[in-house]
Simulated scan of single mutants.
Amino acid sequence: MFYRPEVGHGLPHNPFNAIVTPRPIGWISTRDANGHDNLAPYSFFNAVAYVPPQVMFASTGTKEDRNGTKDSVSVIRETGVFCINIVSAALQDAMNISSATFAANVDEFERAGLEKGECESINAPRVAAAPASLECKLTQIITLEGEANFLVLGEVTGVHMRDEHIKDGRFDISTFKPLARLGYRDYSIVENVFELSRPDD
Score class of each variant (00 low, 15 high):
Leu179Phe: 06
Ala90Gly: 11
Leu91Pro: 00
Phe109Asn: 03
Gly146His: 05
Glu155Gln: 01
Val156Glu: 03
Val73Gln: 01
Thr143Ala: 13
Pro5Gln: 06
Gly61Pro: 09
Glu164Ala: 10
Gly80Thr: 08
Lys116His: 03
Leu182Pro: 04
Leu91Phe: 01
Val193Pro: 09
Phe82Gln: 01
Thr101Asp: 15
Ser133Glu: 07
Phe109Lys: 02
Asn149His: 15
Phe176Lys: 11
Lys177Met: 10
Glu108Cys: 00
Ile97Leu: 00
Leu144Val: 01
Thr79Met: 04
Ile25Gly: 12
Gly68His: 05
Tyr184Ile: 10
Glu195Leu: 10
Gln92Asn: 13
Ile76Met: 01
Val127Glu: 01
Asn17Gln: 10
Asp200Val: 06
Val152Asn: 07
Leu151Gly: 10
Gln54Trp: 00
Asn38Arg: 00
Ser188Phe: 09
Phe2Asn: 13
Val81His: 09
Val73Trp: 04
Ser197Gln: 14
Asn14Val: 09
Glu115Ile: 08
Thr175Leu: 15
Lys63Tyr: 14
Thr143Val: 11
Val7Asn: 12
His9Met: 06
Ala94Asp: 01
Ala180Glu: 08
Ser197Trp: 00
Gly68Ile: 03
Ala148Asn: 11
Glu108Gln: 01
Tyr3Gln: 03
Tyr187Ala: 13
Leu114Asp: 00
Arg126Gly: 10
Thr157Arg: 02
Glu191Asn: 10
Asp71Lys: 08
Ala180Ile: 08
Ile84Met: 15
Arg77Gln: 15
Ser43Glu: 11
Ala112Pro: 00
Glu64Pro: 11
Asp172Tyr: 04
Leu182Lys: 09
Val156Phe: 05
Leu114Thr: 01
Thr101Asn: 13
Gln54Pro: 02
Leu153Ser: 02
Tyr3Lys: 04
Glu118Asp: 07
Tyr42Ile: 13
Gly146Glu: 07
Arg4His: 14
Glu120Gly: 04
Gly117Lys: 03
Asn38Met: 01
Glu164Lys: 07
Arg185Trp: 13
Leu39Trp: 00
Asn123Glu: 15
Ala90Thr: 08
Gly80His: 02
Leu39Met: 05
Thr30Arg: 02
Asn46Pro: 07
Asp168Ile: 02
Lys167Cys: 06
Tyr184Ala: 11
Gly117Ala: 03
Met161Gly: 08
Ser29Val: 05
Glu195Lys: 11
Glu115Asp: 12
Gly146Arg: 07
Arg185Gly: 13
Gly68Phe: 01
Val7Trp: 07
Thr62Asp: 08
Glu108Ala: 00
Phe44Trp: 15
Thr60Val: 14
Ala33Lys: 13
Ile28Asn: 00
Asn14His: 14
Ile86Cys: 04
Ile76Leu: 06
Tyr3Asp: 05
Gly154Thr: 05
Phe16Pro: 01
Ser188Lys: 08
Ala49Tyr: 06
Pro178Ala: 09
Gln54Cys: 14
Arg170Asp: 03
Val87Phe: 09
Ser43Phe: 07
Phe109Ser: 04
Ser88Gly: 10
Asp201Phe: 06
Tyr42Ala: 11
Val152Leu: 04
Gly26Thr: 03
Ser197Val: 05
